[in-house]
Amino acid sequence: MAPPPSLSINLAGVQLVNPLVLASGFLGTDPHLLARVAHAPIGAITTKSCCLNPRQGHENPTVLAWDHGLINAVGLTNPGVNHEVQDIIALKQLLNQSPVRIIASFFGGTVTEFVQVAQILSTAKPDFLEANLSCPNTEADLGRPFAIDPKVTYQVVKQIKQVTSVPLIVKLSPNVTDIQTIALAAQSAGADILCAINAVTGLLIDPESGQPILTNTIGGLSGPAIKPIALKCVYQISQACKLPLIGLGGVSSGADAATMIMAGATAVGVGTAIYYRGLRAFTKITQELNQFMTHHHYKSLTDFKGLAHDQN
């Protein structure tokens, strides 16, 4: 019998035992809860984005399930970077000898804040930093996301890279006209890895009251509804950039994960699938990916990475 396929990947020089990554914002900041996810086969856990000072986020309703996924406008609720450093240290202790990597996600309202937070967060020694340039739900107080402008993207990434040696992931927004230009800006500024996509902006209205259901009115869509958009963005970015890519958006099954890799992703983010399949989503998706690879005689993920780009 042939040996089982290998699911390990190399992400900018760091080994991950599995291509699946818990996407940022899911399951919050409690290290005990994040450690619970690490019992499943998973390559890395992304913590919820933090900023300099504690932030309450938006009033409920903030997260709703609808016909084809979730819509959320949590508003980047977080306890502030100093608290987050303690949480990451606690998470590392809970993970102990586990090979699961930690991605520390962060954001700022200004370039200066991004840099400050990156500096402080690096002291917790996460395996990666993830600059969230693309939250769709905080425009009212933080301004438009940095990831909609290539110049601002370049500027913030360049400055973050100057203050930290932790490999930097830059999370991009799908809510742009040309994602390739933004991805190239991040690449030329020194990003180590790109991550796409963040949530797609959307709106749900309650027909009975005629009012938006989310308190923030506009929210971010995730789940099955955005899978084709995510695949398109990952495909386009990998056409234009050399950087490794974490592809996410609507990945719910092993086949979904495989197609994200075929579009050009090295790793695959999973979030909303937890709503549909519970915390066991990672175990189930891994089993399905294994079966898929065995069925197609793939020995490793690189056997079919970027396959969708091959015309022959």
């Binding site: 914002g25 899911f26 919050g28 809860l33 450690a35 997260v63 959320n72 909303t272 709503y275």
Partner: peptide, 14 residues
Amino acid sequence: KCGFGICGSCSRKG
């Protein structure tokens, strides 16, 4: 917040 186990707001020791 969400009420269905996604946002993590109500986590108590995991």
